[in-house]
Design a protein around this nucleic acid. Structure first.
Lengths: 209, 209, 209, 209
DNA sequence: AATGAATGAGCGTTCATTCAT
DNA sequence: TATGAATGAACGCTCATTCAT
């Protein structure tokens, strides 16, 4: 209906709008992750996020209907990425290689995404956010542990319930320590040691005890 | 409490004032821990704390110069308790018994003090809450790891730097998992399994690899 | 509507533009009346009106320079309609028939246009909405009362100043009551009673007192 | 417990607090009536009210938990006064005197309380306030009309349902006209004329038609 | 003529903090 | 020591208005 308008003042096309919206949305999310990660959900104002993203306060509400909804969107995208990683890990047939992958991927991931990981953990300890994030976190964790149990079973381990939880706790604990003090925590050495500890030889030896 | 005021003229003695102050301070701290851990720092108002402590809002400022200062005082008291625990663990001469103690104490502690532990982690992940938490946390962690390294060395382990960090990470990871989902996490079974994994026999076998 | 644009080059004629503008303007006014009357002036956003009218927010500003100006335009169109009604009433030669007409028209009008009437009163009571409503309302009212005075005089009544005001007040009061509770107010019975009260016979009897 | 404190820095007594609160509350209500009356509920901000009352914005929330609650409190007090008036009117035994009282009281009331009356009417036309005020208004009106019906019946009138509503509408219509243009509306003359119209003689004559 | 992204002032509300008593 | 009325800055959020296209 408007495609034939003669002068140059025509509204943006759908594609242009799509692009604008996508870019703005992504700018906001990025800024929000950064701010939430450092200052916590309640310690971060929409103003902070808008400033960080270089937009006005009002515009944020053009993209997310509330501060909570913004947090939720971020969390969901984190979760999505997490489930993708689980899927990839699941596709490796050799259980010992799988274990090694889990360790290596986790350590590498936290190094590359320290902000996201800090945000993820930080949210978990804000009791009033329960309902927004806690359910998602628990579900994801459960899934992860189920995968590890499966792998451990395939590797021939017994008592997989407790062993899988210890393994998962060790990984998360390492990520925790790294976040607290990224400069000084020797994550690569720890990774190497842990890989060896959960190597085929060690596991087979451990099985016989 | 008011027994010296019967004639209405005699002012309180210094000792009485001291006692009153100490009791009030402790009432406030207790109320604050309870409220912060249920509702989070930002979700708790001074009013909430005052009500819980049975005092007026204004009086709280007689004892703590700000909400942040109150939080910091709590954090410091948690740290203090932590150092005491380190001290106790250090006094056990047998390294294998020491390791067992660390595992058992940690698991039992988090079960009994889940609120404090959640509060502690929550604060640790929001550096803006108190400027200094990160330093204090790092210092404490460093101390703890030094202790574990010493114990591991005594137990004859090699590569104690990485091994101690893995051990500490496992413990903290377990506590983390427990906090996330106290109802369902099988902490006692995990504890038992971990104790066995770090028993004298297992460690001695592991040393030879 | 776009039939002249088939080759995409021929600009619209002045008449077409005029027609487009007129239609758009009227669509907006209609939508605004509907929304304002349902949700009130402050409760209605330009977005609401644009959505109801099926246009974009920006376009509304092409036709009305502000939300207030839109409201004012509506108010003026209501006034205009009011003056037309006065004109019609004035053209009836028989004063007793005129009185009957005023009563009947008013009651029927409020039943059919309850939203417009509610909007009108709402605006009239909030002088800040449009600076000039009060003046316009007073002018209109004055005109109406002058007409009634004229009619009453023709009907032979004395003390027409007060009587006309009482009559007008009764009519407006009835409309007011109807708006307050349209479900339960027995407007038809009231109308009938009032017509009888201001019938030729009654007026003639009243005159002699 | 504190009545014997030796220095002068003792908390205010309950009586002092009571007085402070009563005065502040009344200051706020007065300011709110004034502001709401001129600018409408939505057109008035808490800031406006606070400024008018000479207090801070925050303090208003110490006395009323929300803007709506403030409006409701005002409305309730108006209603209360209204019901008291109904009660007084009801206690007069002579129905003709009662009718005269209603007319006179209403006209005098609106002259003395024009702000309250403007507020009362203005609120009724803000559709989104339904629930806060409309119910109260309808209930009050119903009560008033019931009283008038009773009086009219006692005075020997027939068709009291419609007659009472016409009478009430006339009164409210007069008040309406007065509010619109207090300077020029000849309320006293109107009052006198209406009193005569509803005098014993007129009613008795009217009854026979 | 038409679009909707973008702005920013302003709103209702909360709450850490102060202060007169 | 103890109270709670009072303040004011800040928050999440809305929306009239502007502007590039």
């Amino acid at each position: 209906m408007t495609e034939q308008l003669v002068n140059g003042k025509m509204p943006r096309t759908k594609e242009q709008l799509e692009k604008i919206r996508e870019e703005a949305r992504s700018k906001i999310i990025k800024a929000a992750i950064q701010q939430f990660s450092f200052k916590g959900y309640h310690g971060t104002s929409i103003s902070d996020i808008a400033k960080e993203a270089g937009i006005s306060k009002g515009l944020a509400y053009n993209y997310f209907e509330s501060k909570q909804a913004l947090l939720k969107a971020i969390f969901e995208s984190i979760m999505e990425a997490g489930y993708e990683i689980i899927g990839e890990l699941d596709s490796e047939p050799d259980p010992f290689k799988q274990i090694e992958n889990i360790i290596k991927n986790s350590c590498d991931y936290v190094k590359k995404n320290i902000e996201i990981w800090r945000l993820y953990l930080g949210m978990a300890f804000q009791p009033d956010l329960i309902g927004t994030t806690t359910n998602m976190t628990v579900n994801f964790t459960t899934e992860m542990i189920k995968l590890i149990e499966k792998v451990f079973r395939k590797a021939g381990l017994k008592n997989v319930g407790a062993e899988a939880r210890i393994f998962a706790a060790t990984i998360d604990g390492i990520m925790l320590y790294y976040i607290f003090d990224p400069e000084n925590f020797p994550i690569d050495k720890v990774k190497k040691t842990l890989v060896k500890r959960y190597s085929k030889e060690e596991i087979n030896r451990y099985k016989q005890t």
